[in-house]
Design a protein around this nucleic acid. Structure first.
Length: 434
DNA sequence: TTTTGAGTTGTTCGA
DNA sequence: GTCGAACAACTCAAA
């Protein structure tokens, strides 16, 4: 007789604490087999030294060790299409349930619908839970039931609905519910065609220090620890959103809390308007005549535009996989407005480079910068790359860190004249949207 | 249904 | 140097 088990499938929730779906699985009455699948559909698009793959891999190995210690088993690790893995597991085990946490991206929605169907044929329940957000999809909507497309009223309703007693439960796990003393498959990075990345995902900082100075310092890119670096950890679930909201409230940091709500705002936008991945939220913005000059795009990517703060941002991104948020706004505005390059090009480059890449936020914020999205900047709001230095990096500490060649003869001249580019942008946009 | 107030993150110009 | 208005109207949310 094959063993009766419950499977818990990890995806964007790589932690063994405060995990809703895992908590539920452990209460299912059957031993839980924890599972992670490296999906070629996603991996095949990434370079072999992708830092995010390394990060996920490290995290999974550390989870394997923790589980080994506590249960004598570990965590099953595979590299194949999820569908095929489930087919294989069905041959070995009498699977009673499959538990997992919600994943809201378009590809994930399709994948999960598929798996759910396969399992349903065998009368196996596919049970999914809300874990990576406080409020999802339809939980914060207007009184008429439609989704919000403006942030401020969304945030107000979010806070109105919010009840710490029920929304910040700490789901403490009972490790005795795991499958015991079983040898579960592992895999190496090399076997998947990857290698250890040179870039490391940094630890996040949500200390009292950060919180206290957050509002005052978060706009200044030279303050090395001025922001939380939470992005990748929220992206892959190595921290719990509930713990972070709890922290924000404990420390009475409204601004930091609001940032966490922005994340959920864009997630519900992507859920309700999945076409915004490829198309402007405001349709007439798809009429913009982008110049899309490939040589200019290259200069932007390399940080060789001749505008010091833009170049500093792009070089920080290329070297570390991170860019300070203030500078993200500037480089995005510069690409779309000064160079008139399609926001989708910029979005794709960020997706490739950012350790904290998250589809909903990336698309949402790029469309914001391009002026085409929900709650977007008016199109005539064009960042001035010199003025931004005066405002946010007056001592040039940030610029000097990333553009040490600023004073050298080899440093490139400004690739476009600001005044000319500004006027060209206004004309082009006006033509498209009026 | 109509009305009203408001809208993350900016820049430029002229007084 | 500082300040307020203009930028261009539009759409959204809620009363």
């Amino acid at each position: 007789m094959p063993a009766k088990i419950t499977i818990f499938w990890f995806r964007r929730d790589l932690r063994l604490e405060d995990n809703v779906g895992l908590y539920q699985a452990l209460s299912s009455g059957f031993p839980v087999l924890p599972l992670f699948i490296f999906d070629p559909e996603i991996l095949d698009k990434l370079p072999e030294d992708d830092a995010r793959v390394s990060f996920i891999y490290q995290q999974l190995q550390s989870m394997r060790e923790q589980l080994q210690e506590k249960t004598g088993s570990s965590l099953a690790l595979y590299h194949a299409r999820p569908k095929d893995i489930f087919a294989k597991l069905l041959e070995t085990y009498a699977i009673q349930h499959v538990f997992t946490n919600h994943d809201y991206e378009p590809y994930a929605k399709e994948r999960d619908a598929d798996i759910s169907k396969v399992l349903a044929k065998q009368n196996i329940g596919f049970k999914t839970f809300k874990d990576q957000v406080i409020f999802e999809k339809d939980e914060v909507v207007k009184d008429d039931g439609k989704p919000y497309v403006v942030y401020t009223p969304f945030k107000n309703k979010w806070k109105e609905r919010f009840n710490p007693a029920t929304d910040l439960v700490d789901y403490q796990l009972d490790f005795s519910g795991f499958l015991k003393d079983a040898a579960l498959p592992n895999i190496t990075l090399g076997e998947m065609g990857f290698q250890e990345a040179s870039i490391q995902v940094p630890e996040y900082i949500v200390t009292k220090d950060l919180i206290e100075n957050y509002e005052a310092t978060r706009n200044f890119p030279a303050k090395r620890n001025g922001t939380s670096r939470l992005g990748p950890h929220l992206r892959f679930g190595t921290v719990s959103i509930r713990q972070m909201v709890k922290k924000a409230i404990q420390e009475e940091n409204e601004v930091f809390w609001n940032e966490l709500i922005w994340r959920e705002f864009f997630m519900q936008i992507l859920w309700h308007f999945p076409h915004t991945v490829n198309h402007a939220f405001k349709p007439k913005y798809d009429r913009i005549q982008w110049r899309n000059n490939p040589d200019e795009f290259e200069k932007w990517k390399k940080g060789e535009t001749g505008y010091a703060l833009v170049d500093a941002g792009m070089r920080e991104l290329n070297q570390t996989g991170f860019m300070h948020n203030r500078v993200r706004m500037l480089v995005a505005s510069f690409l779309c407005k000064h160079l008139l390059i399609d926001w989708r090009w910029g979005e794709a480059y960020f997706a490739e480079k950012l350790l904290d890449f998250e589809l909903a936020s990336n698309v949402g914020n790029w469309q914001w910068a391009a002026g085409s999205g929900v709650d977007a900047a008016p199109y005539f709001r064009i960042f001035n790359p010199m003025t931004q230095i005066d405002k946010f990096d007056k001592q040039k500490a940030y610029i000097n860190t990333w553009v040490p060649d600023l004073q050298e003869l080899t440093y490139p001249p400004k690739m476009v004249d600001h005044k000319m580019a500004r006027e060209r942008c206004l004309l082009t946009y006006k033509e498209a949207v009026s």
